[in-house]
Design a protein around this nucleic acid. Sequence first.
DNA 1: CACGACGTTTAGGCATACCTAAATATTAGG
DNA 2: CCTAATATTTAGGTATGCCTAAACGTCGTG
Lengths: 230, 230
Amino acid sequence: MANRQLNPNSESTDNYLKAILALGGPEESRVTSNALARHLDVAPASITNMLQKLAAASTPLVEYERHHGVQLSPSGKKRALEVVRHHRLIETFLYEVLDYPIEEVHEEAERLEHFISERFEQRIAAKLGYPKIDPHGHCIPAMSGRMPKQSSMLLTEAALKTNVLVESVSDRDAGTLKLLKASGIGPGVQIRLQERTPASRCTVVVGRSSKMLELPENIAHSIRVRPLDK
Amino acid sequence: MANRQLNPNSESTDNYLKAILALGGPEESRVTSNALARHLDVAPASITNMLQKLAAASTPLVEYERHHGVQLSPSGKKRALEVVRHHRLIETFLYEVLDYPIEEVHEEAERLEHFISERFEQRIAAKLGYPKIDPHGHCIPAMSGRMPKQSSMLLTEAALKTNVLVESVSDRDAGTLKLLKASGIGPGVQIRLQERTPASRCTVVVGRSSKMLELPENIAHSIRVRPLDK
DNA sequence: CACGACGTTTAGGCATACCTAAATATTAGG
DNA sequence: CCTAATATTTAGGTATGCCTAAACGTCGTG
């Protein structure tokens, strides 16, 4: 037989909840064991084990059905949003107050998000003027609130020869962020997709200086944009 | 047979090293299992087990001899000082930058000290102007340095009717710190021990307003002072 | 609608760090 | 200097979270 008890305050629990939130998307659809295994880089069997514990906890953190994936319970969603809020506030704090280079905030936040107190969260939020987005352009979920819906699309899906605003960039890869910084691409910057080349490249125009750049697909794929108009 | 392998980066390892540093004192004398068990609130058998692992690690963190206690190895001391530096820098940061009440900095620092990066340490040190003491009056060990020796004594050991300066206060109990704050006692404040009553009380004079206070022994015992003269 | 590919779960194990109970070593008092 | 009290260690066990291998379910396709 496997293991019985969950530590509901562990880093591990936090990471499972975050992953279920992220993979479930705004519709909060059910998430499969397989998807979690890939996302968390953990063996599928370990996922099952952990999901069973998350579901069997005294205050269940997920709703789980054999062979049919999981969803966050209300408690689970609350904690997941709290951890995401911590992550993004910490990123903002590192960037704004401690002058971290943008590509290094994620790793530090990923560790610290599990360990800061309510008070710490409150104090950095106050210090930063209760920001609504982090340095990558991701929204910071409100204390008592929910995730606002994304109305954005991937740069690779944008209409050709149309100006768009960069809404956010993925924080997952430091190298990508460094490259984007060097290219002058970040949230709020205006860009235009010139062509969608078959060799998976995009050509774009940046800001007023209107540089031409070639972005490999994986880079272009880490940029979310929204129409300029409204 | 017991356990074999140490996780040299665990919170637990950090706490053992800190405890050995603290209990060994400036002379770095050997520390007994019993003292560690009391200090860490862990069963003596668990101490032995952990000490054996700390000593048997690929880079040993302690020098251990059966029935004769432990001492930090050079690597162990380096890490212990690093953790103490983290702790005290974080306390200073929480107090100076995030406006924490003094009695709440310890608990937060105690958690975060294990998880911050070198960069985080550097950045908050820079932000604070490379402070040498924390808000409780404890010295912050230098990056490449050692603990400066304390030339102070406990208030309960001070000469009677002689002005002394408060050097530091213990950070271990939030209640004590709150009481001291309310009494106006903190690092740099001038006080004088009026009498050493048998019922374990001390009467003191605080600063220019020269209030008379009665301090229970446990409170007086949490204050370190040094002569005013030099 | 049966079968095979793939996803998921069960079973059994390992590692870290804790525990208690029992055995053994050290030390202090007479 | 021997014994009793105390400190320490050994032995064996628990809890959490990970692993692999093998069994089992689900579902698309022929």
